[in-house]
Design a protein around this nucleic acid. Structure first.
Length: 450
RNA sequence: CGGGGCGUAGCGCAGCCUGGCAGCGCAUCUGCUUUGGGAGCAGAGGGUCGCAGGUUCAAAUCCUGCCGCCCCGACCA
């Protein structure tokens, strides 16, 4: 993509309303614009990040056997009356009336809808297990939206739902999602720690939240340093092997980890040696629940078992805050100059900077590199604008692409370009004809090493 | 929902107290000179001063009502 043809409205100054760093950087980097309290438009750069996050979510969901579908944002109130949650949800639920005075709502989640679909169309134990997910916009009319997309009212969420004939099978489904979540966040270059969670208004009896560490996180977290040594990206898992999956879950739930609301200081001190105790802050980016029959019972979701008797389906639900992740990643990965994207979720792999737009030799070298890099399968943002060097550097650092390829007359004299790593700031002179290989190598390194 | 603050050009702000031509910086556009870390000079464009009513010869400024946004708290993925 040529910057001259891209829409990247960066801001030099901090917008006044932005308090936390991710909100500030997302506005400044031209990723989002606010429409009303807690509701945002995603501009091209931000949209590319969302897409990267969704791609990874989809890949890991598919690997774990989940099927993608798409349910609507608008739901009939009737569905929620059946589960009894229509009144429970209170003013947080955005209620809408259509022209015929039908009561509708903008969905805050989809348990009722998916359960109704399963109840309607699944009659036999032979049709189970099923695990269905979608990625869709949700709306919760928070009393006070804040922190940009971190706690907006409208948010993009992957929510998945499992349906099984027995509690044992349901727990196995829960475990598969647990492991899929470990892999998903690791694939994004994040260190996410699973923590046992209160089930809250959504209910159920088994639940974990996944938090990524960031100084600006909303929750205080207490955990065993052992988590920081685990590498979920390296997990090899056979999802068909319930016991192997359960072993991974056991491994990741054994060390102490808790958010402040359920933290037990006495247990923490007893179970974790002092030198391994870590207190920090975290941002919740995923939450999984095993419900048992909490929704399937009131929604009358049953199947006929092998013995011809009706059994109530066992269900679970599994959420990932897709739009929230975009902000959470920035909270966890930025510096004074701007965003520092982990490679897997970066809007482009690299930025190609033409330091002397209009100079025939520099333009030609950049054009050649631009084409070669793209032909190699890399996503390139080519800064072909006529701005000054300082402005180009500042802008590229602000938007945080993992690598910069810098081309100017100075280096071209020797047939070289400069390659710069955004995270470390390290630079390296590279012969023009070696740039593609160098970048290809750099951009396909596993996350965490770039 | 309680408490506080703010709405003036794309962004950041001044002007309001004490009513009298709507300003500044950055950004944008044109020209020239510059060109490896947010350039210089010269010129130009851009505003229902959040909305509605009122007071006044005259309202961004004073009064009333409303709306929106932000921050703190309770709440929450």
């Amino acid at each position: 993509m040529r910057l001259s043809r891209f829409f990247l409205p960066v801001l030099r100054e901090d917008p006044r309303e932005a308090e936390i760093v991710s909100h500030r950087l997302m506005l400044r980097a031209g990723m989002i614009r606010q429409e009303t309290a807690g509701v945002f438009s995603w501009l091209p750069l931000g949209h590319r990040v969302l897409t990267k996050i969704m791609d990874i979510v989809r890949e890991e969901q598919a690997a774990a056997g989940a099927l993608e579908m798409l349910m609507p944002t608008i739901q009939p109130a009737e569905l929620w009356r059946r589960s009894g949650r229509y009144d429970d949800y209170g003013k947080e639920m955005l209620r809408i009336t259509d022209r015929r005075d039908n009561e509708l709502l903008y969905g805050p989640t989809n348990e009722e809808m998916i359960t109704a679909i399963i109840a309607n169309d699944v009659q036999s134990y032979r049709d189970l297990p099923l695990n269905l997910f979608h990625i869709q916009w949700k709306f919760r009319d928070e009393i006070r939206p804040r922190f940009g997309v971190m706690r907006g009212r409208e948010f993009l969420m992957k929510d998945g739902y499992s349906f099984d004939v027995s509690e044992e099978a349901g727990r196995a489904a829960y475990n598969r999602m647990f492991v899929a979540y470990l892999r998903t966040f690791a694939a994004m270059g994040l260190k996410a720690i699973p923590m046992r969670a209160e089930t809250g208004p959504i209910g159920g009896n088994l639940s974990h939240e996944f938090l990524i560490l960031a100084d600006t996180g909303e929750s205080a977290v207490y955990f065993d340093r052992a988590f920081l040594d685990k590498d979920a990206a390296a997990l090899q898992v056979d999802y068909d092997d319930d016991e192997a999956v359960a072993a991974i879950v056991a491994d990741y739930t054994a060390p102490y980890a808790a958010t402040d609301d359920i933290h037990d200081p006495a247990r923490f001190e007893k179970e974790v040696p002092q030198e391994r105790r870590v207190e920090g802050r975290g941002i919740e980016v995923g939450h999984i629940f095993f419900f048992g029959d909490k929704y399937s019972k009131p929604m009358n979701c049953t199947v006929l078992g092998p013995d011809g008797r009706e059994v109530t389906v066992q269900s679970g639900s599994y959420g990932i805050g897709v739009s929230r992740l975009a902000a959470a990643i920035i909270e966890a990965s930025h510096d004074d100059a701007g965003i520092v994207w982990p490679q897997p979720v970066a809007p482009f792999d690299l930025g190609l900077i033409n330091l002397r737009q209009g100079d025939a030799a520099t333009d030609a070298a950049c054009e050649t590199l631009y084409e070669a890099l793209r032909n190699a399968g890399l996503e390139v943002l080519y800064d072909d604008r006529a701005d000054r060097a300082g402005e180009k550097f500042a802008r590229m650092e602000l938007i945080g692409l993992p690598w910069q390829v810098i081309v100017g007359p100075r280096g071209l004299k020797d047939g070289k370009a400069e390659v710069k790593n955004r995270a470390s700031g390290a630079t390296q002179e590279v012969s023009l004809n070696a740039v593609v290989a160098r970048m290809l190598d750099a951009c396909t390194e596993p996350p965490g090493r770039g």
